[in-house]
């Protein structure tokens, strides 16, 4: 369970990233956050594992305060939160397996990890994670030889190998083509359902949000302006979130195909 209590964020240059956000996200939900660019989607997501600090309020993950955690507590909390990025954030020169294994570092002592020693179970865990996203056979290939969609699956596998209870995905499909977008979203959805991992995704495709989410949160200028089920999120609601009618490029458009 993730709770936001009166969370605000003001950037050093004065712009408000978040304004008085109050949210409770329950275990197993697949929440999609929508909003135009600059509405604070990334800020919201990244404040959950404190990649961004907030200026006021408090965020709790499973009852533990992220905001007040000491650095070692914070690392402990982060260990349970997987994160998926728009640009994959893999070490391109390392093998796929090495990237996935790097998700495990939070579980081991600094000393051991400095020598790259991971227990056999970790390797197996990582290979299973790769299997879950159907790229087990790429384990020993250098990451930069994979396509964008495959790289994104590697980063999902990294989150899985981490044995994360929560997955945060910041625009995970923004740099993918429509077809691979669908595969990655399917992976995320399947993992969310099969393993009951709370998943929070930032998206700017409206139709994808409606199709995959169990709950949609709309942000405008750092404020939560909508919070409801996909069924309630009509075109008109979206127009309100965006402050203007929906544009064609905010629809992925292949929804009907598969």
């Amino acid at each position: 369970m993730i709770t936001f209590e009166n969370v605000s964020k003001t950037y050093p240059n004065g712009t408000a990233g978040l304004r008085n956000v109050n949210l409770t996200i329950h275990e197993g939900e697949l929440v999609v956050i929508v909003g135009s660019s600059g509405a604070g989607k990334s800020t919201l997501l990244r404040s959950i594992n404190r990649l961004n600090d907030i200026s006021a309020g408090e965020i709790k993950v499973n009852g533990k305060s992220v905001t007040r955690a000491t650095s070692s507590e914070l690392r402990r909390i982060r260990r349970d939160i997987g994160m998926i990025f728009q640009s994959f954030n893999l070490v391109k020169r390392s093998t796929v397996l090495r990237n996935v294994l790097s998700g495990r570092v939070g579980y081991h002592s600094t000393f051991k990890t400095m020598f790259g020693l991971f227990p056999k179970e970790d390797v197996e865990l990582s290979l299973h994670a790769l299997e879950r996203v159907n790229i087990r056979e790429k384990a020993y290939i250098r990451s930069d030889q994979l396509s964008g969609g495959q790289q994104q699956r590697v980063s999902i596998a990294r989150a899985l190998a981490q044995e994360a209870r929560i997955i945060l995905a910041d625009e995970p499909v923004a740099s993918l083509d429509p077809l691979t977008t669908r595969q990655v979203m399917d992976d995320l959805k399947r993992i969310n359902q099969e393993m009951n991992i709370t998943t929070i995704i930032n998206l700017h495709f409206i139709d994808l949000a409606r199709e995959y989410a169990t709950r949609i949160i709309g942000l405008r200028a750092g404020e939560v302006v909508f919070d409801g089920t996909p069924a309630e999120a009509t075109d008109q609601v979206f127009a309100e979130i965006y402050g203007r009618p929906i544009l064609q490029d905010e629809l992925l458009g292949v929804g009907g195909v598969s």
Binding site: N49, L51, S71, L74, R75, R76, I77, R78, R79, D80, I81, G82, M83, F85, N89, L90, S102, G103, V105, G106, T110, S155, R158, Q162, L168
Partner: peptide, 9 residues
């Protein structure tokens, strides 16, 4: 950033 998010020191 990804490593930080995994809880790495």
């Amino acid at each position: 950033e990804a490593l930080l998010a995994c809880g790495a020191n």
